[in-house]
Simulated scan of single mutants.
Amino acid sequence: MSGPIRLALIGMGKIAHDQHVPAIAADADIVLTATVSRNGEGVAGVAHFRDIDDLIASGLEIDAVALCTPPQVRRAIAARAIAQGWHVFLEKPPGATLAEVAQLSAAADAAGISLFASWHSRYAPGVEPARAFLADAEIRSVTVTWREDIRVWHPGQGWILEAGGFGVFDPGINALSIVTRILPRPFFITDAELDFPSNCAAPIAARLRFADDLGLAISADFDFRQEGPQSWDIVVETDRGTLTLHDGGARLVLPDGSEPSHSAALHGEYSGLYRRFAEIVHARTSDVDIAPLRHVADAFLRGERLTVEPFIE
């Protein structure tokens, strides 16, 4: 491909405007050529369409799409894009089910185009240094605390507590994407408790326990009802002391108290995602890791469902 990748951004909600648009503007390998949204606003000077069918009918030359829609509708849009021969960037989570992502991956492979299941938290500056430290450490326990206020981070986004909207796993899957990256061995869920508001079809909180084949204990506390200070922390106890990732991976504190990386939350993560997307598009390869999504699916399969008070925004 000669010249920058001509990209259409589909689903113009908060994350698209806050993170995707600035990251695309800063990347010389990608140019924002169109936006698509039924409700969200477009970008000044960029062609805007109501849906992907209108974009296709326009004849505008597009090389790739980035999908920022709710997960419930993402598969059908991605399939339409693949049929057009467009490379596809999937915001996390990559689909509403594992089967959807498997089907999209197979379709992309058959079409010879690139599919990217993006996990933005893996691009936080503390993640790779943490992974390097833990590669040869004896890990004794892992504790994840991911608690935030749904009213602050998802105002008016009722879909997130509907069936297929993931509920508290929408942010919680970010934690799982980090843990699956930094730990040297795969792990599996042993039990879970999921709190469902009486008026919602997705959980608002979850408490999870995992283990690996060597008996490593991993616990996670996800909650969408946190008021005041927010918590996005991963604490790893090792034979060399305690390693902590704060602020969603933005700040790493090693056992000796040193902090090799520290930056604002989300700073640089989306730039890293788009660099990676450009790499796989030019290489005509795909990057589809479903490990975080598999753990969420297992939590729904294995977890005890508890009914809690209704959620009123």
Rank of each mutant, 00 (worst) to 15 (best):
I82G: 01
A83Y: 09
A83I: 06
Q84H: 08
Q84D: 00
Q84E: 07
G85F: 05
G85I: 12
G85C: 04
W86G: 02
W86N: 06
W86F: 08
V88A: 03
V88H: 00
L90C: 13
L90H: 05
E91R: 06
P93E: 15
P94D: 05
G95M: 10
G95L: 03
A96S: 15
A96K: 15
A96M: 14
T97S: 15
T97M: 06
T97V: 11
L98N: 07
L98T: 02
A99W: 09
E100N: 15
E100W: 01
E100G: 11
V101N: 00
A102C: 01
A102Y: 08
A102K: 06
A102G: 10
Q103V: 09
Q103T: 13
Q103R: 12
Q103F: 10
L104W: 01
L104E: 03
L104K: 01
S105C: 06
A106V: 14
A106K: 14
A107P: 14
A107T: 11
A108M: 10
A110C: 05
A110P: 08
A110Y: 08
A111V: 14
A111K: 04
A111S: 15
I113L: 09
I113D: 01
I113Y: 02
L115Q: 04
L115G: 00
W119S: 02
H120R: 07
H120G: 05
H120L: 11
H120F: 15
R122H: 08
R122F: 00
Y123M: 13
G126W: 09
V127A: 02
E128F: 04
P129H: 13
P129R: 09
A130W: 12
R131M: 12
A132R: 10
F133E: 11
L134N: 03
A135L: 10
A135I: 05
D136C: 10
D136I: 04
D136Y: 06
A137K: 00
E138S: 12
I139Q: 05
I139D: 06
I139K: 08
I139F: 14
I139S: 12
R140A: 07
T143H: 13
T143C: 12
V144G: 02
T145M: 05
T145R: 15
W146I: 05
W146R: 08
W146E: 14
R147H: 03
R147L: 12
R147K: 04
R147Y: 01
E148R: 14
E148C: 12
D149R: 04
D149G: 03
I150P: 00
I150G: 02
I150V: 14
I150K: 08
R151P: 02
R151K: 12
V152S: 13
P155F: 00
G156P: 07
G156W: 07
G156I: 11
Q157A: 08
G158F: 11
G158P: 09
W159R: 05
W159E: 05
I160Q: 14
L161S: 07
L161A: 10
E162R: 10
E162H: 08
A163M: 04
A163G: 06
A163L: 10
G164K: 01
G164A: 09
G164L: 12
F166W: 14
F166V: 07
G167Y: 03
G167R: 08
V168F: 09
V168T: 12
V168R: 03
V168K: 09
V168G: 04
